[in-house]
Simulated scan of single mutants.
Amino acid sequence: MRDLIKEAIADLKKNEGFIYVTSEGKKIDLHEAAARGIAVTPVNPKDNVIKKLESAGLYLTDGRFMNDLNELVSLINGSSSGKSGKRRTFTDAEKSKILEEWKKVEAAGKKTKAAFAREIGVGYQTFINWLRG
Rank of each mutant, 00 (worst) to 15 (best):
L53Y: 04
D62H: 04
T126N: 10
A34T: 11
E71C: 14
T126I: 06
K103V: 14
G78D: 10
L53V: 06
E7G: 04
L12P: 13
K104D: 09
R88M: 07
I120L: 09
S84C: 06
K103G: 06
G25K: 05
W102V: 08
T126L: 06
I19T: 09
L53P: 03
F116E: 07
G85Y: 01
G63D: 07
K6Q: 11
D92G: 15
K6I: 15
K52I: 00
V21F: 02
L72C: 02
F18R: 10
K51F: 00
E94W: 05
I9V: 15
A108N: 00
L72K: 13
V49Q: 04
F90V: 04
V21P: 01
N48T: 15
P45H: 03
T41D: 00
R2E: 15
W102P: 09
D3A: 15
R36M: 02
G123Q: 12
F18T: 14
N67A: 10
V21S: 00
K103S: 12
F127R: 01
A117R: 03
N77C: 08
H31Y: 01
K13S: 10
S84W: 13
R64F: 06
S23L: 14
A8H: 03
R87A: 12
L72S: 08
L99G: 01
A33L: 04
E24M: 15
K83G: 04
I120M: 02
E16P: 11
V49T: 14
I120N: 05
Y124R: 09
D29P: 08
I128G: 11
F116N: 02
T89D: 11
S79C: 14
V122N: 05
K14C: 14
E24R: 14
A117L: 04
K111T: 06
N48I: 13
S79M: 15
I28N: 05
D92R: 01
G63H: 12
L12W: 10
S84V: 13
I120D: 02
F65I: 10
T22R: 09
T41I: 01
K97T: 13
I98M: 15
N77K: 10
F116W: 02
N70R: 03
S96A: 15
N67T: 05
G57S: 09
A10K: 13
A93K: 14
F65S: 10
A114M: 04
A107V: 00
E100H: 08
K83D: 14
A115K: 12
G57Y: 01
I120V: 11
Y59H: 13
A34C: 07
K6W: 03
K26A: 08
P45L: 08
E119R: 01
D29K: 10
K51E: 05
K27D: 07
A8D: 06
M66F: 00
E119N: 12
A115P: 05
Q125M: 14
L4R: 00
K52P: 00
S74F: 04
S55P: 03
K104R: 11
A8M: 07
I28P: 02
L30W: 05
Y124F: 09
M1W: 05
A107G: 01
T41L: 09
N129A: 15
